[in-house]
């Protein structure tokens, strides 16, 4: 098992190396002077261009440039944002908590609701409950998340005026204490719901299939034969085994989830990493784009390894070769 994880960590390391190569390749292969990729399209002074050129060593041999670049990346030095004139890593870290709040809320929501609904659907297989839920999940699966966000915004924020449409805080709300928490929660509802729908559909569908598999196992027959109550058979015996794959799905979809947060945060102007990514696209703030890409890749690698380890802990049957 140890050698298995050593291999996974080695693979993660390789991914990071590939990411750094890709960044380097993009800077140099994009049309035009690499300096422009680093400082954007605004007209810079020749002195500044020269400074960037020296800083990044763009006048040196390519291999040497690459090694320097890789060394900087290894120290989380992603350069300076063109728009904010601040280190990219500082800007990213400042935006990360908002994204984690949104993702965390949505994850808790979609996993619990998805698992409960799937268990109910499995218990009442082929009933109208099962059919309605399953059909809804198929539709939820096909929708672009940001379009759903636009619709939610139109209905609940702009027409019914129930919830705020944009951002994370109101200007007039209290700036500390309980009032502030309440204000953030009100802003959180629509983006978190939008964000949850796809994952809810995913987790529902997966758990439902796993529930059907679990309910056909011998230990279920044994439990029924022992006279265990039916709801206990379904919600305890079968469900406990059916939710294991959900852990994997969440862990292995981490990159996909972060991509979803870019789109949802853009719809609701939620001030997180995703919104920063969107703003960096329109501002052509390339260092920020590459910094986010690198950091997100690192997070995905770590999430994958953690998922594997967690799986081995919660399911003792798993043996890694």
């Amino acid at each position: 098992m140890l050698s298995y994880f050593a291999r996974r960590v080695w693979q993660g390391f390789l991914v990071i190396v590939v990411i750094i190569c890709l960044n380097f390749f993009l800077i140099h292969a994009a049309p035009g002077d690499p300096v422009n990729a680093l400082i954007g399209t605004m007209a810079p002074t020749p002195e500044y261009m020269e400074q960037v050129r020296r800083e990044y060593g763009l006048d040196e041999p390519l291999l040497w440039q690459f090694l320097r670049y890789a060394a900087r990346m290894a120290q989380f030095d992603f350069g300076e944002s063109l728009r904010f004139r601040q280190p990219v890593i500082d800007i990213i870290l400042a935006r990360l908590p908002a994204t984690l709040l949104l993702m965390g809320t949505a994850l808790v929501l979609s996993s619990t609701v998805g698992i409960v609904l799937a268990a109910a659907a499995a218990k009442f297989r082929d009933s109208w409950v099962d059919r309605v839920l399953t059909t809804t999940s198929i539709v939820g699966f096909a929708m672009p998340a940001f379009w759903l966000g636009q619709l939610m915004l139109i209905v609940f924020a702009l027409n019914l005026n129930w919830l705020p449409a944009q951002g994370m805080y109101s200007l007039r709300a209290p700036s500390d204490g309980f009032g502030r928490v309440l204000d953030i929660l009100r802003h959180l509802i629509l983006p978190a719901l939008t964000y949850s729908v796809y994952h809810l559909a995913l987790i529902y569908r997966l758990t439902r299939v796993k529930m059907h598999e679990a309910l056909a196992q011998d230990y279920i027959i044994a439990a029924r034969a022992r006279g265990v109550a039916e709801h206990r058979v379904v919600y305890v015996h079968a469900l406990r085994n059916a939710i294991l794959p959900v852990v994997t799905i969440i862990g292995l979809n981490f990159g996909f989830m972060l991509a979803g947060s870019v789109l949802v945060e853009t719809v609701f102007a939620w001030p997180g990493l995703g919104r920063l990514f969107y703003e960096a696209i329109s501002a052509r703030d390339y260092p920020v784009l590459m910094g986010i890409f690198t950091l997100v890749s690192g997070m995905v690698v770590i999430a994958n390894i953690l998922t594997d380890m967690l799986y081995a802990v919660i399911d003792p049957r798993v043996v890694y070769g």
Binding site: Q11, G12, L14, V15, V18, I19, L22, L26, A29, A30, P31, A37, G255, F256, L258, A259, V262, F277, I281, R284, Y286, L289, M290, I292, F293, V296, S297, V300, V301, N304
Partner: peptide, 19 residues
């Protein structure tokens, strides 16, 4: 496997933004 781990939406954005 390495390609599968790379967050593809982010890389797609980078590629289209650069090229």
């Amino acid at each position: 496997e390495i390609f599968q781990v790379i967050p593809r939406f982010f890389l797609a954005v980078l590629m289209v933004a650069f090229f």
